[in-house]
Design a protein around this nucleic acid. Structure first.
Lengths: 208, 208
DNA sequence: AACATTTTGTTGCAAATGCAACAACAAATA
DNA sequence: TATTTGTTGTTGCATTTGCAACAAAATGTT
């Protein structure tokens, strides 16, 4: 799913004009958006990836989210009172920037492609919300074992198979689950010993 | 903020007709929506409150979210593959049910109130997304102490004061932070002893 | 007012977890 | 190809945490 799904090529140009969309190419490490408090903008990742970073009043940085191809960022999503937000490109990244007002206020003509665009955007945002609920579902589990099992069943259900490849490195998975990596590796070992899963590299098989 | 903000009373009836909106009054314990897999619906809580409950393949129930007045529920938010979802009224609750298709496909007339309604809805959803990011920000902290401090600073920033009343009982707070209640009480005691906070019932003062 | 129910405060103890530290690989880069 | 950088696997140990269990307050209900 992407924000321009089901919009014909010939209409895209019209849409971009209507939205006053700005194309940006940002090199690795470059800042896509900073200091969001003032501007209400939508940012669509065309390709590449970026990190959403929060800088609190003490100057501590924390990674809030990672944006990938087709992802949408909107300032209201991260309304982190009293702290600054930056979006930094993790690699060469192309984005489209749109002012929120231009996005939401359709012109009088009621162009079908603008409606389609809003429809797509809403879908992507609802999907993001779903991802968050999934993560909360995992993070609220008390033990590392429960977190792993919840994560594995979610992936397994998505793929429709008890055998699947996890889409993260084990280091990244530990971060996602918010547990110590070494403790997580230990727990995976125990899950294997208890014959609940099988592991070959990043391919997991659930045995129950 | 509520989904019908800035829509005039006289337009509301037209909007409801246009949306084919259904009003429901559900008594305490009653089911608002169940078995969501098939229907793509939007549910707006007019007053009362409700619990979003997930029932997994083993029949285990877990509370996913609590809906309050003005909250919006959309099935795509909880696209929990392979498990059922129910929304149960926690008290007498009035809701409005709208089919997603009717919501997103504006009629040819491009009625301003329909646009306003979509605008409002998107705002509420973005706000929900923000709430989720806040909770994830808290849940990814490793220790109970860090979770508490993160929670306190978020509330403090929202209220614009170092002294504030927490909007939850301590039992509910423990649930929200996903920590053991007794362990949390112990940690609050330590925070007091270390002179980092002051506590009078549910009023907290941050001392740094 | 009497009763039941929920919330709060506290503690000992066992279990789970983070941390530090290191070695073996694998992958990316010069 | 050599070298640097990142990932995986493992362990001992101190700390944190969940759990169980109980009493005291507070709150809600008849």
């Amino acid at each position: 799913m992407n924000a321009f799904n089901n919009i014909e090529k010939k209409d895209l140009d019209k849409l971009f004009k209507c939205l006053h969309a700005i194309n940006l190419n940002i090199k690795k490490g470059g800042t896509i958006i900073s200091n969001l408090s003032n501007t209400d903008t939508i940012c669509i990742i065309i390709d590449g990836s970026a990190s959403v970073i929060r800088i609190d009043y003490n100057g501590n940085k924390s990674l809030i989210d990672t944006l990938h191809k087709d992802d949408i960022f909107e300032s209201k999503m991260f309304n982190l009172n009293n702290s600054e937000l930056s979006i930094i490109a993790n690699e060469e990244t192309n984005v489209i920037i749109i002012e929120y007002g231009k996005f939401i206020n359709r012109c009088k003509k009621n162009c079908p492609y603008h409606n389609q665009f809003i429809d797509n955007t809403l879908s992507i945002i609802l999907n993001k919300l779903n991802d968050n609920y999934e993560r909360i579902q995992i993070l609220t589990k008390k033990t590392t074992r429960e977190k792993l099992r919840e994560y594995f069943t979610i992936i397994s259900n998505k793929r429709g198979s008890k055998r699947f490849r996890i889409p993260l490195s084990y280091s990244d998975l530990a971060n996602y689950l918010s547990v110590d990596r070494s403790a997580m590796m230990r727990e995976i070992k125990y899950l294997k010993e208890d014959n609940l899963i099988e592991v070959e590299n990043r391919i997991i098989t659930i045995k129950y």
